[in-house]
């Protein structure tokens, strides 16, 4: 009678997760390939104006249609993605480096340094970061670098918190005691034992921040504060399409919009899978 068969539950969920990871990987690979390979290969001018062919709906010659001065939207989307991705990756890396440094410093110093630094982080966090970002870009002439600086300076806060918590937990491990007893200096303990422990967390935070940074670039450009309008980025494309959308022309808004959403969701999907690997207990949704 002891014919009980124990079954694992959740098999269906796991297969959808694997499917999501695979799709995300394919999309991210396609995006990276597109932005790296297409521009040097085709050698076309994405800013070429053709007033005779303005606001054409999607066709074989222009798969995504043309905008209000006759520029090919597919080409502008690819170039725009290139700029947005550059801004996103650089801003995410800079923000992660700042956050890791601040978090590690706070945790390693402890005492009043820790208290003051973390209260400053709290104060910065209490201001909506898009508002703070707008304030920072407004101080500069429009361009790529002010946007990078703005996004980076407003996004290191959560990384600082994560890294601080991680360092505090690692610092109380007996192997740090053993290192101190073995004559290791503060610097040696930090570099040899603490830093390698927080790097996976910091790397994950950086990857998760890339889509978020892209969204911020788009938001700033959409508000007219980010990149100059002639420079194609996903934000400027959506911004300049607003006028034609009211006239019933949907393609200048739809395609750049999809270019913002699909790649960022794909990057977030991959990062989520990575997080489940290093921290399986925290089943999570996409964190943007």
């Amino acid at each position: 009678m002891a014919d009980i068969v124990w079954r694992a539950h959740g098999g269906v969920r796991r297969s959808t997760r694997a499917w999501r990871v695979r799709t995300s990987a394919v999309i991210v690979a396609a995006v990276v390939l597109a932005v790296l390979v297409v521009p040097p290969l085709v050698n076309l001018d994405e800013q070429a104006v053709d007033l005779a062919a303005k606001l054409r709906p999607p066709s074989l010659a222009h798969p995504f249609g043309t905008d209000d001065v006759g520029r090919d939207l597919l080409l502008r989307c690819v170039y725009g993605l290139r700029v947005s991705l550059l801004v996103g990756v650089v801003a995410a890396v800079v923000a992660t480096v700042i956050g890791t440094a601040v978090g590690a410093l706070a945790a390693a110093s402890g005492g009043w340094v820790d208290r003051i630094v973390m209260r400053l982080v709290d104060i910065f966090s209490s201001v909506p970061h898009l508002l703070l970002g707008i304030f920072i870009v407004a101080m500069f002439r429009p361009g790529v670098w002010p946007v990078v600086v703005s996004v980076a300076l407003t996004h290191w806060l959560s990384t600082a918190r994560i890294v601080r918590a991680e360092v505090l937990s690692l610092r109380s491990r007996p192997y740090v005691d053993a290192a101190i007893s073995g004559g290791a200096s503060r610097l040696r303990v930090a570099v040899r034992h603490l830093l390698p422990g927080v790097l996976p967390q910091a790397g994950l935070a950086a990857v998760l921040m890339v889509p978020h940074a892209i969204w911020h670039e788009s938001a700033l450009s959409f508000l007219g504060l980010g990149l100059p309008t002639h420079q194609a980025s996903l934000g400027t494309l959506v911004q300049s399409a607003r006028g034609s959308l009211l006239a019933g022309d949907w393609w200048p808004t739809l395609f750049p919009g999809l270019f913002i959403i699909v790649p960022t969701l794909a990057i977030a999907g991959l990062a989520g899978a990575w997080r489940e690997r290093i921290n399986p207990r925290r089943r999570s949704e996409l964190m943007l």
Binding site: Y175, A178, S181, G183, R192
Partner: peptide
């Protein structure tokens, strides 16, 4: 001071926790 710290050799209860896993 380092010379004072290294005058002691310490062995802990749980080897897993007192060894850097890397």
């Amino acid at each position: 001071p380092r010379e004072q710290r290294t005058a002691f050799g310490v062995v802990f209860q749980q080897p897993r926790l007192s060894a850097d896993p890397r």
